[in-house]
Design a protein around this nucleic acid. Sequence first.
DNA 1: CATGAATGAGGATTCATTCAT
DNA 2: AATGAATGAATCCTCATTCAT
Lengths: 222, 222, 222, 222
Amino acid sequence: MAERQGNGRKNDPQRTQEDILAVATEEFSTHGLAGARVDAIAERTRTSKRMIYYYFGSKEGLYLAVLERSYRRIRTLEADLELANLPPEKALRTLIETTFDHDETNPDFVRLVSIENIHHAAHMLRSEAIRELNVSVIQMIEAIIARGLADGTFRRKADPIDVHMLISAFCFFRVSNRYTFGTIFRRDLSEKATIERHRTMIADAVISYLKSAEGGPVTPPG
Amino acid sequence: MAERQGNGRKNDPQRTQEDILAVATEEFSTHGLAGARVDAIAERTRTSKRMIYYYFGSKEGLYLAVLERSYRRIRTLEADLELANLPPEKALRTLIETTFDHDETNPDFVRLVSIENIHHAAHMLRSEAIRELNVSVIQMIEAIIARGLADGTFRRKADPIDVHMLISAFCFFRVSNRYTFGTIFRRDLSEKATIERHRTMIADAVISYLKSAEGGPVTPPG
Amino acid sequence: MAERQGNGRKNDPQRTQEDILAVATEEFSTHGLAGARVDAIAERTRTSKRMIYYYFGSKEGLYLAVLERSYRRIRTLEADLELANLPPEKALRTLIETTFDHDETNPDFVRLVSIENIHHAAHMLRSEAIRELNVSVIQMIEAIIARGLADGTFRRKADPIDVHMLISAFCFFRVSNRYTFGTIFRRDLSEKATIERHRTMIADAVISYLKSAEGGPVTPPG
Amino acid sequence: MAERQGNGRKNDPQRTQEDILAVATEEFSTHGLAGARVDAIAERTRTSKRMIYYYFGSKEGLYLAVLERSYRRIRTLEADLELANLPPEKALRTLIETTFDHDETNPDFVRLVSIENIHHAAHMLRSEAIRELNVSVIQMIEAIIARGLADGTFRRKADPIDVHMLISAFCFFRVSNRYTFGTIFRRDLSEKATIERHRTMIADAVISYLKSAEGGPVTPPG
DNA sequence: CATGAATGAGGATTCATTCAT
DNA sequence: AATGAATGAATCCTCATTCAT
């Protein structure tokens, strides 16, 4: 009698909402905001179309809820990383691989972000929840760079947001542009070997960039 | 009666089509495939909605035409580069900067590619024109890497498609994810100084990656 | 357990119903029968939407209750008048001013009656309560006219219902058509001076009508 | 081949619109703005529901068009009156009877105005067309009063807008409140004799009002 | 007496597309 | 080569009402 949540009961608002959100996430990420059909979402839900409006007010409201839920999930992921005890290069490699793996395993999130960009991030701007995302990655990168410079692992005083962009761009692009890139270059980006090679590559690239000296060719230390 | 093209006539099929395509490019890139409105396109055109169907058959037909036109434009750009006479590092830097500048100046193209990816590149696959894009960039990169390895500038035997992806990802992401990235990190990616810094950064990163040794931490020579 | 009415208890059925009726009166009179929203009423109520159905059965049931409550209120008003002891002209003027003031101070009632007319008085017909309204005004007017004819104050043998209509029409119209009339003639009917002038005017008009001779032009004195 | 309008041709936009407006007028006046059903209007039209949106944009747009059309019609009616050559009392009687007859024969218009008042004349305010209605009646009444005062027919210096209201109120109320008034007083206002009696009554009342002296009882002749 | 969750049926509106000229 | 009028088929959304507790 004590526990009540998560069981098979009919009136479980939380579960109903979560059900709708899960289905909606897929529909939006597959068809875009305008292309998604509320009817299609409703059909694949345990509940009816009416409930979507009951809980989310409108198609846009649902889309926003989907977006917020997606962002909330990564935040959790990042926060769980324990990098402070690793040597700088290893720490950075771990962080990069985490980002890489996240995008690789969450194509829905990647697609939603692409869609949101097509809409000039209009919904994200309206969402306090998302705007308040405290981006801990930046602090992690900053700390790693500082430690790396201090112990001589790195030589370049790079801006942490720029470095994050370098990392993100590659990890994100692999997933977001999978189809066009794959088509043009006739390459299947979901092959295991390719994934592994790219995973190493982006880490190598970022690390070599930080190790190399600024404003010139990498001069080997004498 | 003889000459007919490019004059100021009212009924100039080519001009009419080009007019429609220009407007449609903007509409599609702003609202996505499903979000774009045929009516909206027609309204901003010199001609009527009926003409869109006359020339392009359907909304999808128009979208495909827009996509092909956008791809046709880059092809031209790449083909014009003269890199063979430059030393490898300089050649690579030039190529990267060209890619960077292209994406920076063609946000519509970037957006269209994002949209096409949301649709699993379905239209691109159907378009002979786009599939026949012979991707000369890959050959260029391949040649540069070969020359760089030969003359000792580079040490890493990287796959040219992978390198192209590293370059593309960053250049593309900067534009495609401008809005969400800018919102989350409160950074205006269209600031001149930022553009300049990023332009140098991606070139430095790629070059340092190729200069560094494979399969492990960059061990300084000597 | 003994006393229950009128106290501050939470669960006071009478107070709950009265609360709902007050809110509903405003909602119906502002938006009409079809335009009124049960949700909107519920929201502004101390109780929930479910209670509306508990007490009034349906939206129409609530509307009818609102209508009956409004009619019940005027009946009281009219019944309180003591006109028998006043001279005919004065009595009539008092009666007219009472009607005038009633409509002026009860725009909600006026609007409800307008709404009811749009629906062909269908609900009123179904309401015993309203049909049983014994319209004492008619008897009052009848008596006044009789006394006026007897003592020579009036010369016209007018039908009391017609006279009531002449009075009602003006008093009602001022309030019911306040918005369109005000808009077309750019006149604010709620200005104090205008109210006062109209209040006198309708009394003067009715009285001069009863004083003038029937069936012909009023022959000027002297 | 010359004539084209008003025939039975399919593509006759004017006729299509007029058809929609006629049907919509009835639907709106019968059910109110919120109660009217676009589907119901479409069904009774020669064309489809789609055409309603094609020409009028929305239900509100259609309602506004209906309202404007109704107002445009009276304006025409009023303008056609030729009162200048009649003696003041006769002129006034003619004007009053015209107003009376108009409301009596145009219950749809009366109902629309009632509906518009329920909505606080919000649509009318937004309509330039209606706001620009130049209300010639006022000038007519003003002229009649002036002539009547000059030739001694009238003695009261009444405000023409007030007089117009006195007239309008009665004529309008008879129609607008036909159902509630009829129900309460068990009187059928559409009976020929009643109509005739009321038609005379309002004229008599207004005329006797203007004939009587201001600020006091009407002094009996002799 | 009271309530939050749920809903079927219907209602307004939009959209890509075609017809007649 | 061009066009204004017309449209069927969705599509989003709302509303009064009821259920389970």
